[in-house]
């Protein structure tokens, strides 16, 4: 499988990265080189193999339903949450107006 300029433009749009036409042109051979290289995985017979789900055998722990049990993972910290916001107003994050 290889990508063309239209595909690269589409991926870049999906990834929300603005790219110029010149950048797309440059990326096409680069990405194709990488894709051609990773496609050697197709050689491996994996018909009897399950995809890896956990790197190290381990089970998912579930936490207790307690509010703010650990201040690091709890809420009630609006100032901390907004501290680095490019546009914080009246306790909200501001973004360009969205029309739904």
């Amino acid at each position: 499988m290889s990508v063309d300029t239209a595909t690269v433009a589409k991926i870049a749009s999906l990834a929300r990265i603005k790219v110029s036409e010149a950048e797309i042109e440059a990326m096409v051979p680069e990405l194709n080189g990488i894709l051609a290289w990773v496609e050697q995985l197709g050689e491996v017979d994996t018909s009897q193999v399950e995809p890896m789900t956990a790197v190290i055998p381990n089970t998912l722990r579930l936490r207790d339903d307690v509010i703010d049990a650990d201040p690091l993972t709890g809420g009630d910290k609006r100032d901390a949450v907004l501290a680095n916001a490019p546009a914080a107003e009246h306790g909200f994050f501001g973004v360009p107006k969205v029309i739904e």
Binding site: V44, T46, V49, E50, P51
Partner: peptide, 14 residues
């Protein structure tokens, strides 16, 4: 073709 296959090969590597 890519991701699932890669996770399978990853299982083989492990």
């Amino acid at each position: 073709a890519y991701y699932t296959q890669a996770q399978k090969v990853r299982a083989l590597i492990a």
